[in-house]
Write a protein that binds this DNA or RNA. Structure first.
Length: 434
DNA sequence: CCTGGAGTTGTCCTA
DNA sequence: TTAGGACAACTCCAG
């Protein structure tokens, strides 16, 4: 216990460049102890050996190497966040904790609890905006209330960005003061195994991809998307650098996708109830069928609709699914099978490497028709039409469903009937509420 | 307070 | 073959 130090807590900002809170911590003038916590209340857990922990571990390893070059190290812990900090306080005299802000209700609660605890110890908890460009109440209507419709929100967002310089948060490690010994956590030390094979999830932010995005993004057989989602989810890339690239293009379709992240993140922050309930109450009367065995078929990619099955199999084996196909598979679950969007949301949450609560909940509610600014309920994707339109030479479906043969692949529900049943159920559901 | 216009990503039927 | 309207009404938003 000698010098006062500060702790920098890596969360979903696993990078050493343009990192808002890290930049502040390094400039604090005090020695910095960098840590990562596998929070026992927040998946993924370190004990899981899945695509998410692999991704996180690979990135932690990269970060650790950078610290080791300077004679320091990244400390990794597992457990309840408050307990972890209590442990740290046994060995260090901590002046402040720095971290980038979270917006999910459970994480807000966790951070509030930690903040209260740190306050009792006279330690500052200093959080920064990093994962979005505009947060919370920064983009609201003229009456001060939050936007619930994307288009007017995006207009205001675009207006605001015209008149500002995108910040870049300098993180100069080699001149910074770092704590020069690794902090070992008794409970987690043995479990923390850095993956030896560093998995790569390459992203594509090229001018070509951004310029052609409008034309190519809808075809899952073409490599036409940016593959950015994983990196934005874990902060291995700064959102500001993505926006900077997107703004170089005359076509703002790609930029608009980035604005959706800010939109849904602020919707979640303002309306945390939407994680577990329909955003629009009037849909609460829908009587979902919620058939367990049909749900399992959907999960496994055995619905008999090649586009749906290909999507689910891509998800199951890679932790990723093309955006167009996410809409098709989700629509199929909610509308053809009449299964509550929350079931699908939970499955995607478990499987998607890029799982982000705000975006996952927002998009599932959009598909189901229950969300703010969502698709009208009578808009039922036709999985066969979608196949014809977006994968007509079967490049994508053949990749993921090798046994697929046109005309012999038989669907679990017939489209026209399922569509009719869906429209009737939604109509009845609306009547049930009024 | 009133008013008019609009609302990510579709599908189906009809003329 | 193809373009256009219906699908439902409601809420949101700006002026």
């Amino acid at each position: 216990m000698n010098d006062e130090i500060v702790v920098f807590w890596f969360r979903r900002d696993l990078r050493l460049e343009d990192n808002a809170a890290l930049s502040e911590a390094l400039r604090s003038g005090r020695k910095v102890l960098p840590i990562y916590i596998f929070d026992e209340n927040v998946p993924p857990f370190s004990s899981e050996n899945n695509v998410k922990t692999l991704f996180i571990n690979a990135q932690l390893q990269k970060i650790n190497l950078e610290f080791e070059k300077l004679g320091a190290a990244l400390s990794v812990a597992e457990g309840n966040a408050v307990d972890v900090f209590k442990e740290i306080l046994k060995y260090y005299n901590v002046y402040a904790v720095y971290a980038n802000r979270e917006y999910e209700p459970n994480l807000i609660k966790r951070d509030q609890e930690l903040s209260s605890f740190l306050t009792t110890q006279k330690i500052l908890f200093n959080t920064s905006k990093d994962q979005v460009l505009f947060e919370r109440d920064e983009i609201v209507k003229s009456d001060g209330l939050p936007y619930k419709i994307y288009t007017p929100y995006s207009k205001k967002w675009l207006e605001r960005i015209q008149n500002m310089d995108l910040p870049f948060f300098e993180c100069t490690l080699n001149t910074a003061k770092l704590v020069h010994n690794k902090f070992y956590f008794s409970s987690s030390e043995s479990k923390m195994v850095f993956s030896s094979k560093v998995n790569k999830w390459p992203y594509d932010l090229s001018k070509k991809t951004i310029d052609n995005y409008t034309d190519t993004r809808n075809f899952p057989g073409i490599d036409g998307t940016s593959k950015l989602s994983n990196h934005l989810r874990y902060g291995t890339l700064s959102v500001r650098s993505c926006i900077r690239e997107a703004m170089k293009s005359s076509d703002i379709t790609f930029l608009k996708e980035l604005i959706w992240r800010d939109f849904f993140t602020q919707v979640l922050w303002h309306f945390p109830f939407s994680v577990t309930q329909n955003f629009k109450e009037k849909y609460n009367g829908i009587v979902w069928r919620n058939n367990q065995s049909e749900f399992e078929k959907w999960c496994k990619g055995e619905t008999g609709y090649p586009m749906v099955d290909a999507g689910m199999r891509e998800l199951n084996s890679t932790g990723f699914m093309h955006n167009r196909v996410r809409m098709i598979t989700a629509s199929f679950l909610c509308k053809h099978l009449l299964i509550d969007w929350k079931w699908g949301e939970a499955y995607f949450a478990e499987k998607l490497l890029d799982y982000d609560m705000a975006l996952n909940v927002g998009n599932w509610q959009w598909v189901a028709g229950t969300g703010c600014d969502s698709a009208p309920y009578f808009r039922v994707f036709n999985p066969s039409e979608q196949l014809k339109k977006f994968d007509k030479d079967f490049t994508y479906v053949k990749k993921w469903v090798p046994e697929f043969q046109e005309f012999t692949y038989t669907p679990m529900v017939e489209h026209t009937q399922a569509r009719k049943r869906c429209l009737e159920t939604f109509k009845q559901g609306l009547l049930n509420v009024t």
